[in-house]
């Protein structure tokens, strides 16, 4: 199956997964490349969202051929959980970033290697 045919097909689980994967990879790359702590945080959010897309997609009865084996609302619930978690995490992370700024006068993550082994 060529990439083009893939695009021409109706939206299926695979498409969601590709979106999720792209989001995930973008997030990873963002985390790995951004030196700004906020950037990194954004990368984290991307990764979380990529994962959340996957969950939603897998739990959707419309997208799955074996719908009679549905997992019910589990996927949705976990997605909701991820969103909440992301929010909480963002709050904590921002607090950390503030503290970090207080001590280092910057939020460049490369500057802080106190946790080096």
């Amino acid at each position: 199956m060529s990439f083009l045919s893939f695009l021409s097909q109706p939206v299926s689980l695979s498409h969601y997964l590709i979106v999720g994967a792209v989001l995930f990879v973008c997030g990873i790359v963002c985390m790995a490349t951004k030196r700004n702590a906020i950037g990194v945080l954004m990368g984290v959010e991307l990764v979380l969202n990529g994962a959340a897309v996957n969950f939603v997609a897998f739990s959707s009865p419309f997208l799955r051929a074996d719908s009679q084996l549905s997992l019910g609302l589990d996927g949705h619930l976990i997605t909701l959980f991820i969103i909440v978690l992301a929010a909480a995490e963002a709050a904590v992370a921002l607090a950390i970033a503030l503290c970090y700024y207080n001590t280092h006068a910057t939020i460049d993550v490369d500057e802080g290697d106190e946790l080096k082994g």
Binding site: I28, M31, A32, T33, K34, R35, V40, G43, V109, D110, G112, D113, E114, L115, K116, G117
Partner: peptide, 13 residues
Amino acid sequence: LRQVQTGQLRQYV
């Protein structure tokens, strides 16, 4: 092994 633990967040990622 502790050399792996650079403290660099991005490396960890």
